[in-house]
């Protein structure tokens, strides 16, 4: 399908049309920051912010998910939760956040298939939005990604001031566009160039860079290095880095019940909490913060690439932005480099 143009004044119409037959999620302003929420009209949409505070993984990998229901007793029953096949759509997802699903897919669609994730992923169309002005802690370019990458989205919008340049990437995207084709216009070579210019400018404005060269073997050699102790000393274990990370996917399972019924639920968990690894015996293999902080770095930059051939980081910069004690992942990786070169 060739690329299209959407005039900005047509956007409300598009939102309205799409939300009539899809659950449409878009960034909304919430108490001074941005959050993905279900929207039904254009006014709720707010594209002022670059990244939403909580990443869109929360729409596919829900914070709380019911796995099955049960009733206790001799005649007790177990009922599996119905899989929700609702068609949904995430509008204005940034390319880095879209890339997070590429990292989450092997977790939930690999050896163990998670029906909840898979059905949501399958039924969700990702409409990306190019980042015209990256923020100070953006570093997606370090992962061969770009602020205008079409790689992980179904459709990509690029803001060209008075209009959007629309690239339709996948079959899913094509099918969606077909239903609302009449509000789009044909694009010209000129529009394509404008997009390219915007992306080039964006890439240039990204100042931070993470050196991933040979990182896995480097990390292998320094598991017991005192760097981890030094980094972890200031960590307060708040878990913001993991809750706001678009690629963190650890969860906890618990039974919740009243007298007559109950359910097994799955909730997000964080490796920054001591309870995360606490055994029933009381023993905790990661008893100190040093081992927890180290685990976070190793999981993202060593174990995950070893297992799935992809680094579990998208370069969105949320963990750097919101860490209250300035544990800067780029800085940590830089130090790893310096130490291994010594």
């Amino acid at each position: 399908m060739e690329n299209l143009i959407l005039q900005k004044d047509k956007l409300p119409e598009l939102i309205e049309k799409l939300s009539s037959n899809h659950v449409l999620y878009g960034p909304t302003e919430e108490n001074g920051f941005s959050l993905f929420k279900q929207i039904s009209n254009f006014d709720e949409l707010n594209l002022k912010y670059l990244l939403t505070r909580v990443p869109p993984k929360s729409l596919i990998f829900k914070q709380t998910e019911t796995l099955f229901k049960f009733t206790p007793g001799r005649k007790g029953t177990v009922t599996s939760t119905e899989i929700n096949e609702e068609k949904s759509l995430i509008f204005a997802i940034r390319p880095c956040d879209a890339r997070s699903f590429k990292i989450l897919d092997p977790v939930f669609e690999g050896n163990f298939e998670d029906p909840f994730y898979i059905s949501k992923r399958k039924n969700t169309v990702l409409i990306g939005l190019t980042c015209n002005s990256p923020e100070r802690n953006c570093f997606c370019t370090s992962f061969d990604d770009s602020p205008g990458s079409t790689e992980n989205v179904d459709i990509l919008f690029t803001d060209l001031d008075d209009r959007f340049y629309v690239e339709v990437v996948t079959e899913k995207g094509k099918n969606l566009i077909k239903s609302v084709e009449d509000i789009f216009e044909k694009s010209t070579k000129n529009d394509e160039d404008s997009k390219r210019n915007i992306v080039t400018k964006s890439v240039e404005s990204i100042t931070r860079k993470m050196d991933l060269d040979g990182l896995v073997p480097k990390l292998d050699k320094m598991f017991d290095h005192e760097l981890w102790h030094n980094t972890a000393q200031k960590c307060i274990g708040c878990g913001i880095c993991t809750y706001l990370c678009p690629t963190c996917h650890c969860f906890d399972m618990q039974d919740e019940s009243s007298l007559r019924e109950g359910a097994r639920i799955r909730v997000w968990d964080s490796c920054m909490y001591p309870e995360y690894t606490q055994h029933a015996s009381g023993h905790n293999p990661r008893a100190i913060r040093m081992s927890r902080v180290r685990n976070r770095v190793y999981h993202k930059f060593s174990y995950f690439p070893k297992n799935e051939d992809i680094t579990a980081c998208t370069g969105c910069g949320r963990c750097i932005d919101y860490c209250p004690v300035n544990i800067d992942i780029i800085d940590v990786i830089e130090e790893v480099g310096v130490i291994s070169n010594e």
Binding site: V54, Q63, C238, G239, I240, Y243, W268, S270
Partner: peptide, 15 residues
């Protein structure tokens, strides 16, 4: 409205 948004990361507690 505020509590509805809480993601219960317990960062308030840890900090």
């Amino acid at each position: 409205e505020h509590f509805d948004r809480c993601i219960r990361c317990y960062a308030c507690r840890e900090a």
